[in-house]
Simulated assay, not measured.
Amino acid sequence: MKHVLRNLGCLLLLGCAVCLGQAAEPTDKPLPDIPALMHEVEIHQKASESMVKDYLYHSFATEQEQDSHGGVKKTETEESDIFYVAGARIRRVTKKDGKDLSPDEQKKETERIDKEIAKAKERQGKPTDEERDVVTVSRFLELGSFGNARRIALNGRDTVAVDFTGNPKAKTRSRFEGAIREMEGTVWVDEQDRSLRKIQGHFVNPFKVGGGLLADVKKDSSFEAEWTKVNGEVWLPSSASGQGAIRVLLLLNFHGNLRVVNSNYRKFKATATILPGLSTVEPDPQTPAPATPQ
Rank of each mutant, 00 (worst) to 15 (best):
P168R: 06
A170D: 02
A161V: 03
D284I: 05
R173P: 02
F164G: 03
T280W: 13
F176S: 00
G178C: 07
D220V: 11
N262L: 07
H202L: 14
S221I: 08
R247Y: 00
R157M: 12
P237W: 01
A289K: 05
V281F: 14
L252H: 02
V261N: 10
S263K: 05
S239P: 10
K171F: 01
R175S: 12
K208Q: 12
I199Q: 10
R194E: 00
K208H: 07
L213E: 00
F223N: 06
K219E: 06
K269N: 15
A272W: 12
N155L: 14
E177W: 00
F223Y: 11
G185R: 09
Q243P: 09
Q192F: 02
G277P: 06
R247H: 09
F203Y: 11
W227E: 02
R181G: 14
L252P: 04
V230G: 06
G211I: 00
K267E: 10
N262I: 06
A291F: 03
R194K: 15
T228L: 10
A272F: 11
D220Y: 13
D158I: 02
A291Q: 08
T273N: 13
A225M: 13
N231K: 08
E184F: 11
G211A: 02
S222M: 09
D220T: 15
Q192P: 01
E282M: 15
A272I: 03
R175L: 11
S239G: 15
F254W: 08
L250S: 15
